[in-house]
Design a protein around this nucleic acid. Sequence first.
DNA 1: CAAATGGTGCCATATTTTGGCACTATTTCG
DNA 2: CGAAATAGTGCCAAAATATGGCACCATTTG
Lengths: 239, 239
Amino acid sequence: MNVRLRHDAIVRSLRRNGTSTIDTLAEEVGASRRTVLRDISALRDEGYVIHSDVGRGGGLQLDPQSIQTRAKLSVPEVFALLISVAAMRAAGNLPFAELADAGLAKIEKALPPDKVKDLRAFLECLHIGQLSPLQDLSDTGKMDPDLLSAFEAAFLNRHMIRFDYRDAKGRKTRREVEPQAMLILPPLWYLVGWDPARGDFRHFRMDRISTPEALSGTTFRRRHVPFEDDVCPYSALTP
Amino acid sequence: MNVRLRHDAIVRSLRRNGTSTIDTLAEEVGASRRTVLRDISALRDEGYVIHSDVGRGGGLQLDPQSIQTRAKLSVPEVFALLISVAAMRAAGNLPFAELADAGLAKIEKALPPDKVKDLRAFLECLHIGQLSPLQDLSDTGKMDPDLLSAFEAAFLNRHMIRFDYRDAKGRKTRREVEPQAMLILPPLWYLVGWDPARGDFRHFRMDRISTPEALSGTTFRRRHVPFEDDVCPYSALTP
DNA sequence: CAAATGGTGCCATATTTTGGCACTATTTCG
DNA sequence: CGAAATAGTGCCAAAATATGGCACCATTTG
């Protein structure tokens, strides 16, 4: 039997039985006592907390808190999770934020080093604040699902971004802007772009953007984005 | 060299070079052509998308979108991430929600089956709505970090929960309630408990709860929690 | 056509994992 | 106390697995 499968079988068995002796485990998974002992040691190295009591009535016990998933996530998925948690905690008073952060920190540690750099660059563009309660939210629409990949490419590689925009009065325009920052005023999200044609910053509500596209041939330099005092850039999770 | 390390080395090399031939890779990682071919095949099985072109000028190319992390998360961390994303998306209009969901679905698939059942039971208790803009948020405090583990145990095993509560007027009481639901009105979180002593439901703001403790000897039955119409129970991510 | 590339099957060899055994240390039961 | 039950370690031969080399095939490019 495969090592991986045997480890899983041992964990399952420990979870089911509460307490098991090494010999019981060995019989259950069809391996020798010696091998099970080696597996236990390996599981401990992996982070599983397994208590042991020697003597009559003793045995092994798995701490259920220490059970770990080993999900494989793609980089955009990690970005999305991170943004969600960051936005939520900024929206105020997220319980369990420490745990969510700990999870994200682990995920971040598992990323390739240059992706971590990308992640931090992305987070630097993220500004979070509180929306005025007077804002009319009645026409809030759905976000274009292509936004994240277009934005990821645009922010990370300093590409300009082109999209169709429908403003509050329903007028449609085609825009080409430098994506300088992302502003989150829950539940609304804005792209803060420098519009070269107009020589000024413009805020675009994300749910009014359609057919976004990063212009891979272009680059731009970062500008100082004038934010009000109560809007602060998001500080990265792990310092 | 270790298989794991060699796989990592191959991925790194592919990421750095853009296009590599098998022979270049073999030289770089110090293995034979045959072994590198086997490794490429294994990486593809793991989910890496590697394009190949035969003929002069051909070679291998790694699709950067397919790079995966393999973080190991504990179960409470998964709960915390899930709650964060669920709450955020309910708070309105979370961009990239699909991606975050996809990530969570993967994580959920990697959980042991009984933990998935727990997760769903937990989510059934989660009700999410919109806070009235008139609510005074000035005295919002920090959540007790022990809340999640106490709540997890209490919700999943139907244990009563005991805690100290400080109400809006600053009066402190000690409570023992059945945790029937969790109500999220961002940015505030409430425990909805049936108080047997008072024979009625009570709402407790989570940031006013301290020293929570699941009473492991007790159980209770689920009651119908009277929610207003605009508060809906959170529906699990993967159907 | 020849050269450059990815890809497969086979087999002997190198490496790693496994099982068995002897042994130690600790606890519990009678 | 002594015997039994338990976890844990070190060592070595045997079993299993990974590796490298080779011959070979298919496709593309010049």
